[in-house]
Design a binder for these strands. Structure first.
Lengths: 210, 210, 210, 210
DNA sequence: CATGAATGAGGCTTCATTCAT
DNA sequence: TATGAATGAAGCCTCATTCAT
C-alpha cells in the first residue's frame, strides 16, 4: 500500500539517463501540444522547450506522432493500473455507491497526476493520426464493453435496475468522460469531492441504488 | 409540419449558383477530411474531389480552416433549428418522456442529414484550430448550461428528482454525445428507435420519471 | 536525309512549353553536375542555373536521380538512332574500313551533340545510384554482345581474322569508349578526323584488314 | 620468386596494431561502398561493419573520402609494384607475346588480391570527389603515356607494326581496363587463362606480332 | 585508445497561395 | 469566373562530427 506509485526510478542510474531524456522530451512535447495544439507544433518548439538539440529528439522518437502514441500507451496503462488496483482493493463490506466513489476518486487522482496528457488526449488525440484515432476508438469501445459486462452482471443478480446494459454503459462512460474533460479544462468550479459525489449520485439514481 | 426539414434552400435562384460551388467545395472538403483527416488533407485533395481548378477553391474559401468554421456554424444552426422546432411543437399533453423522445428523434434525424459534418466535427473538430476549439468548447458549455437551467427549473417545480443540476446536465450531454458519436461511427448495432428509447429510459430513470 | 535530326519541336507551341521547362532543367542539371559533380550538386544549384523557383524542379522531376535516368535514356536513344541510321545507310560498295570510319564519324557527331551528357555519364554515371549503375552495366554488356555477334559472323565468313569474338568485342568497345572519353574530356590534341582514322587503322590491323 | 607477392606486411610488429584498425576500417569501408555505393554509405554503416565505435573511425580517417584516397594510393602502389616486378624479371629470351602474357598474368593476380578495391575504384572512383577524379584521370593518362612511349620505341626499332602510338596506347589501355572490369564484376565466364591468352592474341594481332 | 550520446548545419521536399491567361 | 503553372517559405530529418567519459 505504501508503494502504490507504479513507476519507481530509484537505483537505475544508467538506464534512467535514457529514460530521463525520453521522458523529458515527452513532457516538453505534451506541454507544447497543449499550448499550441498538436499540428501547429514544430519539432523546433519541442526541443526549445526541452532545451536539447534538434537531433536529440530524433534519437528518442521517430516523429511527433510517436510521442503521442507512447503517451497514449502510458495513459492507458496508468488508467488500467488504477482500475486494477481499485478492483483488488475493494472493501467487500462497502456498498456499491461507496465502491463507485472510491473508483471515481482513484481515477480523479490518476488523471490529476497525468493532467497534461489527459487534457491533450481528450482534446485532440483523435486528430493526431488515423492510427491514434483507431487506437482511441478501440479504447473507448473497450471501456464501454467492460462497463457493459459489469452492468449486465449486476442487473442479472438484481443489484441494479434492469436497463439496456450497453446503452447504460455508453451513457455512463460518456458522462464521466465529459465531466473529467470539463474538470481538466478548468471549466468546473465545484470542489472535486463534491463533483465526484454528485456524479456518483446521478448514476446511482439512474441505476436505482436507493 | 409540411416544412419540417430545417434546411430549405429553394427560392434562392440567384445566389444559388455561388452557393452551389461553395456547397460543392464544402461537401468535397468534408468527405476528404473524414477519409484522410483534416490536417493531412491538402487543398489539392479537395479540388480533386470537387473536380474544380486549384484557384477556384480560393474564390470561395480563405483556407481549409474557413471551410470548417462555416461547417461548424451550419451544424450549430441545424441543431439549433431542430431544438427550436421541437420546443415550438411540443404536444403539451405529452408526458416528459415522450417529449424527450421526440427531441431525441429529431436530433437523430438532423444528425443523419448532416452525418459527414457531424462525424468530422465530433472526431477532430477541436484539433482544427484553436479558434474552432474555443468555439466548440463554448458550444458544449452552452449546451450544458441550457440543459442545466431546464433541469434546475424542472427540479424546482418537482417534476424531476432533485440532483446537482450542472452535474446532471454534464452527465446527460456527455452521454448523448457519446451515443451519437458511436452511432455515427457505425459502432452501434441496435436500431435507432431502440437506441433512442433506451437512452431516454436511462435518463428518465436517473431523473426519477417513473 | 534533310530531316535527320530526330527531335523536332516545331508547331508544338502548347506541349513544347512543358518540354521546354523539363529540357531546360535537364540542361541546367547536367551542366552543374559536370562542374561540381553529381553528389555535391544541390537542387538549389540546379534551379539557380535554370533560373526557376525551387518548386518548379519538383514539378518535372522527382529528384536529381530521375534527371540522370531520363538523361541516360535519351543518350542511349541518340546512340541507338545513330547506329541504326548508319546500318540503314551503309554503302554496300564500300570496304569494311570505310564502313567503320563512317560509323565512327557518326558516333563522334552524336557524342559531340550530346557532349555534356556524354562527359557526365562516362565520368560518374555509375555512381549516381545503383539503379543507374545496373542500367549502365546492362548497356555496356549489350554493346559488347552486339559487337561480338557482328564479329563472329564476319569471322565465320572469313571477312576478318579468326579471334575470340567476345574478347575482341570487349577490347574494341573498351578502346573506343576510352578514346571518346579522353576526347570529350579534351585530353586528346589530335584532330577528330585523324583520331578516328587512326583508331580504325588500329582495329583494322587487329582484325587483319590489310 | 619466393617473394612474388608484392604486399608483405610482416616484420612491422610495432605499427601493425595501428595498421590493423586502420586496415580493418578500410576493408569494412570498401565492402560497404561496394554494396551500397560510396555516397549512400554513412559512417554509421562502416563502423557497424567494422564493429567499432563511432569515434574510432575518426581516429584513423578524416572522412570517407580519405579512405578512398588511401585506397587509391595503395592500389596504384600495388599495380606499380607489379609492373616493376614484371620489368625486372623479364626473361630476355622470351618473345614479346610471352612477355605480354606474364605481365597480364601478374596484373590479374594483383587485381584478384585487391578485388574489392579494384571493383569499387573502377565503378565509382571518379565520383568520390573531384580530387579523386583528378587523380584517376592523371593515372589513366600516365598509363596511356607510359604505354605510348613503350609502343613508340618498339615501333621505331621495328619490333611492332607502325601505328599511331598514342591511339594504340588508348585502345590497349581502354580494352584492358574494360576486360578487367567485366571480369571483376563477374560478367565474363571464360577461364582467366583463356581470357588473358585471347586478349594478348588480339593485341598481338593489332601490333603485327606474327 | 575507444566509445556513443548529443548536436545543429544543411539539404530535401511539400504545399498553400498567387496571378497571368 | 475559372484555371493550373510557378513560386518559395517553412518544416522535416539526416548524418558528419565532437567530446566527455
Amino acid at each position: 500500500m505504501q508503494d502504490s506509485t507504479p513507476t519507481n526510478y530509484s537505483n537505475l542510474s544508467k538506464s534512467s539517463k535514457n529514460t530521463d531524456k525520453s521522458e523529458l522530451l515527452m513532457q516538453a512535447s505534451l506541454e507544447v501540444f497543449l499550448e499550441k495544439g498538436f499540428h501547429p507544433t514544430r519539432i523546433e518548439d519541442i526541443i526549445a522547450r526541452a532545451k536539447v538539440g534538434k537531433g536529440t529528439f530524433y534519437l528518442y522518437y521517430k516523429n511527433k506522432e510517436e510521442v503521442v502514441e507512447k503517451c497514449l500507451d502510458n495513459f492507458r496503462e496508468q488508467i488500467g493500473k488504477t482500475l486494477i488496483w481499485v478492483h483488488e482493493n475493494i472493501d467487500s463490506e462497502a456498498g456499491i455507491k461507496d465502491i463507485f466513489l472510491s473508483e471515481a476518486r482513484m481515477l480523479a487522482e490518476t488523471l490529476s497526476a497525468n493532467q497534461v496528457a489527459g487534457k491533450f488526449l481528450f482534446r485532440e488525440g483523435r486528430a493526431v493520426s488515423s492510427e491514434i484515432d483507431r487506437k482511441m476508438s478501440a479504447y473507448y469501445l473497450e471501456l464501454v464493453e467492460t462497463s457493459e459486462q459489469t452492468l449486465a452482471m449486476a442487473m442479472s443478480v438484481g443489484i441494479i435496475k434492469k436497463l439496456h446494459p450497453r446503452v447504460a454503459a455508453m451513457c455512463i462512460i460518456g458522462g464521466i468522460v465529459q465531466i473529467f474533460h470539463h474538470w481538466l479544462e478548468g471549466e468546473v468550479e465545484s470542489e472535486v469531492e463534491e463533483l465526484l459525489g454528485e456524479t456518483v449520485n446521478f448514476y446511482a439514481s439512474a441505476l436505482g441504488l436507493e
